[in-house]
Amino acid sequence: MNFFDKVFEQRSRQLAQRSSRRGLLKGLGAMLVGGASIPLLPVARAAGAEGAGRPVEEGDPSSCDYWRYCAIDGFLCDCCGGSANTCPPGTEMSPVTWIGTCHNPADGRNYVISYNDCCGKSSCGACLCMRDEGDRPVYRPDKTNDLNWCLGTSSVTYHCSTAIVVGVAFDD
């Protein structure tokens, strides 16, 4: 017997001793069922939703023309020491917000934007933008941006506005 025959015989015997006849079926079954149920796990769903809901970013967040600012009425936090998503140091983000949708030309989709105001310092004064798309009169208080949205914060003093993507819009 040559060397290869010996090796193959040894390996085959080892395999036969160590694995059961239905082991492959069991493993394959577990893999198929397990694989099929991975998308049902909350972790996988969250990751999928995040991927699907993440906009393609283009443009300058310190310019009024930036796509997320379609309904903005105020100072851009991006020009005030913060960013389109974060408040400048020393200010507090209002949990109560004006919510609308904006069209993102970079990926052609509409997104839900939350305009969280940053509060607790006097008006920032830089980059005043008033695009106001989707703004409604004050008799629709939840859809008007002509009032102070520093609500639920310790101070009602308005400093600047962020524009945070919170989801994908559904078209009617």
Binding site: R45, I99, G100, V112, D142, G152, V166, F170
Partner: peptide, 30 residues
């Protein structure tokens, strides 16, 4: 079901979330 839940989440976001906050915890007088 997740497709339907996408619509309902969008409706919540557009009509309720501004004041009731994303997790329904509310804030201030809400």
């Amino acid at each position: 079901a997740s497709d339907d839940s996408g619509r309902v989440v969008f409706d919540y976001q557009m009509n309720c979330q501004g004041c009731h906050t994303p997790d329904g915890a509310g804030a201030g007088s809400v």
